[in-house]
Amino acid sequence: MRREGSPFQGLGTVALKELADNLSSARMLVLELLIVLTALAALYGAINSLRQNTAEDPFLLLRLFTVDRAPLPSFVAILGFLIPLMAIGLGFDAINSEHSRRTLSRILAQPIYRDALLMGKFLAGLATLAVSLAALWLMVIGLGLIFLGVPPGGEEIARSLAFLVIAVFYAGVWLSLAMLLSVVFRSPATAALVALGTWLFLTVLWPMLAPALAQVIAPPDPRYAMLGLDTPDTAIWAQTLARLSPNHLFGEAMLAVLSPTTRSLGPVFLDQLRGAVMGAPLPLGQSLLIAWPQTVCLIAGTIILFVAGYIVFQRQEVRA
């Protein structure tokens, strides 16, 4: 049965209203402060350690993103950890709060489809995240200019922009997960708890579980172990399993984009290195190619989770 009218009617109105809500909410302010303060601390560490060897690094700006100084992790690692928190904070009560506030049936009684409501909320959340990430990006570049005094090159800007785009999609995965949970669970507290649980599991527990599981699936060969090497099968399984976590995909993509010397993200065999100039940076295009599968996975994850939320929402009863 075909519906009449456009599913996008009212989309702009919903998106603008939600964007205004997001940007002015106290919750957003707290999350942003958290991220900015931690990022500042990481950048401070990076700047201090970079000042000691500014001489010959051609990608000084990019090093700001990736250099860590104990005990603080690098800027990118912090983002990999905190972006999900921000996305979950924006999405976990997207739909169920409309239920509990009893605004849902009133809004849906206006001449719009449900599509517009869900999509508008998603786009507003993604725009909010993009704005915050762009601000962080500008902060890094600005601090780099002030404290390192080296103007960024074109390729550095291009690579850091690629970082920005991938980070937005990484945020998109978590945003659509949070929104899916906000559709499935009527109580915002349950949705938040499940989302945060998933986040902790995938960022903290899964990196430890993946190698263990890989060893169960493909037991290490003692002959490799005697040589002090990883068994190839086990290593491949460990990596495949680890890649189920968006956090890992983000980390890999960041490695390829922000460290131009990265040649491969998987295990490398010696014969693959024949003719390679070790330590020489790859051109931008090649680095992007390496990060491409990870980026596609993040985009696909965003879309799949959004579609799942969309289907559940379309079939849901409006009444509380």
């Binding site: 519906r3 009893r102 049936s105 009133r106 009684a109 001449p111 719009i112």
Partner: peptide
């Protein structure tokens, strides 16, 4: 209303049971 809900909803007003608004 199942086929052209927008046409219907454009001309019909609905006040739900214990209506809610955005408190802020």
């Amino acid at each position: 209303p199942a086929r052209s809900p927008l046409q219907v909803k454009r001309r019909v007003g609905y006040l739900p049971d214990s209506v809610g608004f955005y408190d802020y």
